[in-house]
Design a protein around this nucleic acid. Structure first.
Length: 886
RNA sequence: GGGCUUAUAGCGCAGUUGGUUAGCGCGCUUCCUUGACAUGGAAGAGGUCACAGGUUCGAGUCCUGUUAGGCCCACCA
């Protein structure tokens, strides 16, 4: 017997266990056509990332599934990796350089990209290391990075394929532009956020009003939230049905602060009700205006540069930051009396998802993916149920987005990422799209070719992840075996960014869905409901929690408080749940190992039914029921339900009852007289429980598994199968009676302040057929657990004069305590019990007198209600008699 | 503006297809170091299930509305 300390200290085990696992090779999976594959590809964290609670939750969920399936005998593969996270990473490295006083422009593209690679070498594995501390059983040999050679190959292949199908095009459009990151963004990367803004009403004077005499008020008032963009106005539009402006259509206006002449045009797009019903048309800085200008053949005027500063078209405002320019322009308009009024106006404006800068709608030449044709099959597979979302409600969100999908802007004006496989002939302007750099122009033969400067959106590589990690575009064995993957586990934030696009790419490039189930878990928030973020300073660092409570505690706790798809509210104390439970498991095992002999450890399979007593049958019934329920819960992605089932079984059934019941049978007994059967059952139930717990708490279960005896990892032990012939309702209800008796006696002790040390003599009167034998079969258990020295069972029990009593459905309890009993107190106690029952009977009888109930409710419900009433009445009577007798 | 989601004990949450005495964890009260565990054990107290209607013999559970949170989407300048 090893010396096992009375406390589970995670630090003594986690590191060594993890390295043993890694060395064992059990994390690694190869195609094995004799087994079923079970594949998960990790949502690749950003290479700049450090582990936060969202990751902890996300990866714990995946590891639970992976470990569970591995134990079930699948070829369980969890592909790990990181995402190059174009903009985010470029920003980080740029900031580092900045601290050294270097800009990336000074460094130049090549050197700068080199710097990023160096940075990645140094810090890029941080999050991977952190995942290991969590216990993640990823196949690390297969760790991928979106900029790896193979994955980059996949990106080029995808681009070329789509281009050749006409699904990628280049064009001049208004896109979301981040002036700080100086790149285009997709719509998803520029989420709208509400801001408290202002609506400026500006007077545009008629040309014929001559010199800008505001006093005349002869002109049109337009309303805008972004007055600085007026410098790019090319017209004012009104709704053709708007009577107020009918006469003014075609009239010439002078753009204030400039000399520009413009016309009043009509367009159905204009909303009569908003503002003044007249809208300034700024095609280069607003996408609606751009469309409108196109309809009217108006040339856009760009007044801002990529840095968010006004350009030469802004005249004397040139060089000013856009918000500076706004202030100045507003001031000048006011001075000229052209600013009619300013209203408070809250509206939503796009913000860069990386740096939170206000997005500028910006006219520029970019590359796009035509999404509608890709979306169609991806809508189909979800509608037909080939891909299921858990919880279901996300299906609607997904479909709604997919059905309104817009083209995807994929070019980014940054340096870190996959460069577009696009080459321009400098001579004839031909565009060549090719995976490898062409030697000469296919059209004119010129060798003067230049590759496009832009890189692709990070998500253009992530959307290939489920198959690029398995070797695509090569037709690999891995791809054939492990694809499609089983389930995608993710947070709702990246449903559109990533999940939807993976479904599209899977259907497009492999012709097969990438996964059949999508499990979407909640967002991790702090105790007050705020999203955890560095800037809010409300982060709970998972590594701190692992240090303080252990990885198992972190894992168990976070799952325990996560109900399907609901957000998770965290505070440090919550991790005590898991820590305490790990300790409980540790100590229960310690008890078992301290009291079980070597022979039982071998497990001779003495679990034959005829060898079992009632307690054994009961715990095996509960065990098998639990196995069944836990497996079912996992199948349905009900993680917290699965967990609480094992928790309740292990702590309450096994520790609180079974172990307590059998204690005297094995403690202090000599090796020969020890009940061998009990020992084997203890081991069997313990081992089964460890297996059920292993996916949730891998470290402590492994540590104990090895304490029991040296052997291979619990990681590859077979997942328990429920053996239904152990499930026994009769035994379970018998044990309920036994527990009820014990609780009743303890109750009396507690109510009447009888010390535990005082052993009691108790008389039990069974009231129903069969109860007597249940009691006598379990007399020893009752005596031990209720701390009795004598237990008399007699149907015709004659109640001694002075005694404490309990009355239950199945039995009466008498505890004679001559001379000790406080009659008044006992009377009060019993009367209180009786009152409770009386309240119940009133309610039940009322129900039974209700004709509607009797006539309409199913027969069995009515009968059950009658039986219930009968039992309550009986108990009230018995209590009454008992009180009288006192 | 559209959609989703939440409201159950002081706090955090479960409550499967409508039928229990409405559960669990933390906290609280009382007792207990009884040979695994005080990160423990035993016994308790605490809820008119947000509000108002409706369906039903019966509603925490289904429907409608209201209120109050939260989230996502959206081109009203």
């Amino acid at each position: 017997m090893k010396d096992i300390p009375p406390r589970y200290n995670p630090k003594d085990h986690e590191e060594s266990i993890y390295s043993k696992w890694e060395n064992s090779g059990f994390f690694h999976a190869e195609p094995d056509f004799s087994k079923k594959p079970f594949t998960i590809t990790i949502p690749p964290p950003n290479v700049t990332g450090i582990l936060h609670m969202g990751h902890a939750l996300n990866n714990t969920l995946q590891d639970i599934l992976i470990r569970w399936k591995r134990m079930q005998g699948s070829a369980s593969l969890w592909v790990p990796g990181t995402d190059h996270a174009g903009i985010a990473t470029q920003n980080v490295v740029e900031r580092n350089l900045h601290e050294k006083g270097i800009t990336r422009q000074e460094l130049g593209r090549e050197k700068f990209v080199e710097e990023i690679w160096k940075w990645r070498e140094k810090y890029g594995n941080t999050i991977i290391m952190q995942l290991k501390r969590l216990g993640a059983s990823c196949d690390w040999k297969r760790t991928r990075f979106t900029m790896d050679k193979g994955l980059s190959e996949a990106v080029l292949e995808a681009f070329v394929q789509l281009y050749n199908k006409g699904l990628i095009y280049r064009g001049n459009y208004i896109i979301n532009w981040c002036p700080r990151c100086r790149t285009a963004l997709s719509d998803e990367e520029a989420p709208h956020q509400n801001v408290e803004g202002k609506l400026y009403y500006i007077l545009y004077l008629f040309k014929e009003s001559g010199e800008q005499r505001a006093e005349s008020k002869e002109g049109v008032v337009v309303a805008t939230t972004r007055p600085e963009t007026m410098l790019g106005d090319v017209a004012v539009a009104v709704n053709p049905k708007d009577k107020r402006y009918k006469k003014l259509i075609g009239k010439k206006l002078i753009l204030p602060l400039t000399e520009r002449e413009m016309e009043i045009i009509t367009d159905d797009f204009v909303d009569k009700k908003f503002g003044t019903g007249a809208v300034k048309v700024t095609p280069a800085h607003d996408s609606d205006d751009y469309d409108m200008a196109k309809r009217h053949n108006l040339e856009p005027v760009t007044i801002m540069g990529p840095d968010g500063r006004m350009n030469e078209n802004a005249g004397r405002f040139s060089g000013l930051d856009r918000f500076e320019a706004r202030k100045l322009i507003v001031a000048e308009l006011e001075e000229k009396k052209l600013l009619i009024k300013i209203e408070k106006h809250d509206y939503a404006v796009g913000h860069c998802y990386r740096c939170h800068t206000v997005i500028e709608p910006y006219l520029s030449l970019q590359w796009f993916v035509r999404m509608k044709p890709l979306a169609e099959p991806a809508i189909e597979v979800v509608k037909r149920g080939k891909i299921k979302f858990h919880p279901k409600r996300w299906t609607k969100v997904y479909l709604n987005w997919m059905e309104n999908i817009k083209d995807w802007c994929i070019s980014r004006q940054i340096w870190w990422g996959h460069r577009l496989p696009v080459y321009y002939c400098q001579k004839c302007n031909a565009v060549i799209v090719s995976k490898v750099a062409p030697e000469k122009c296919q059209k004119c033969g010129s060798q003067d070719l230049k590759q496009d400067e832009d890189v692709l959106d990070t998500w253009f590589s992530s959307w290939l992840w489920p198959f690029s990690t398995l070797g695509w575009p090569e037709k690999t064995k891995d791809l054939r075996y492990f694809y499609p993957t089983a389930v995608l586990v993710t947070a709702p934030e990246i449903l559109f960014f990533w999940v939807a696009r993976m479904i599209m790419s899977g259907k497009e490039f492999i012709k097969e869905i990438p996964f059949s189930d999508v499990y979407i878990h909640g967002t991790v928030r702090d105790a007050t409901g705020k999203k955890m973020s560095k800037s809010l300073g409300n982060i709970i660092d998972p590594l701190d929690i692992i240090d303080e409570f252990g990885a198992d505690a972190l894992r168990f706790s976070i799952i325990a408080i996560t109900s399907a798809g609901q957000d998770v509210f965290l505070s440090k104390e919550k991790f005590e749940i898991g820590r305490n439970f790990a300790n409980k498991i540790w100590n229960a095992s310690r008890f078992v190992l301290m009291n079980v002999g070597a022979s039982e450890l071998q497990g001779t399979g003495a679990l034959e039914k005829e060898n079992l007593n009632i307690a054994d049958k009961w715990i095996l019934s509960r065990l098998n029921r639990t196995i069944e329920a836990v497996t079912k819960a996992l199948k349905n992605y009900k993680f917290n339900e699965a967990e609480s089932l094992v928790y309740d079984f292990f702590w309450h059934d096994f520790c609180d009852w079974y172990v307590e019941m059998v204690k005297p049978q094995i403690i202090g007994q000599s090796a020969e007289s020890k009940e061998r059967r009990t020992g084997e059952i203890l081991i069997h139930v313990l081992e089964s429980s460890l297996k059920l717990l292993h996916p949730f708490m891998p470290f402590v279960t492994e540590a104990i598994w090895q304490n029991i005896k040296e052997r291979e990892s619990i990681m590859i032990a077979a997942w328990p199968e429920a053996d239904k012939h152990y499930i026994d309702k009769k035994i379970e209800s018998d044990i309920e009676i036994v527990k009820n008796i014990i609780v009743n006696i303890r109750n009396i002790r507690s109510d009447m302040n009888i010390a535990y040390s005082k052993k009691l003599t108790v008389g039990l009167a069974p009231l129903r057929q069969g109860v007597g034998s249940v009691i006598s079969d379990n007399a020893e258990y009752i005596k031990n657990l209720a701390h009795l020295d004598k237990l008399t069972i007699d149907e015709n029990f004659i109640r001694p004069k002075s005694c404490l009593s309990a009355v239950a459905e199945e039995f009466n309890i008498f505890i004679p305590l001559e001379g000790v009993i406080d009659v008044a107190a006992e009377k009060a106690r019993l009367t209180k019990k009786q009152d409770l029952l009386k309240q119940q009977i009133v309610f039940t009888e009322k129900k039974l007198k209700d004709k509607n109930f009797i006539n309409n409710a199913p027969e069995e419900v009515v009968r059950a209600e009658h039986e219930k009433a009968e039992k309550i009445r009986e108990q009230i009577d018995r209590l009454g008699k008992t009180i009288e007798d006192l």
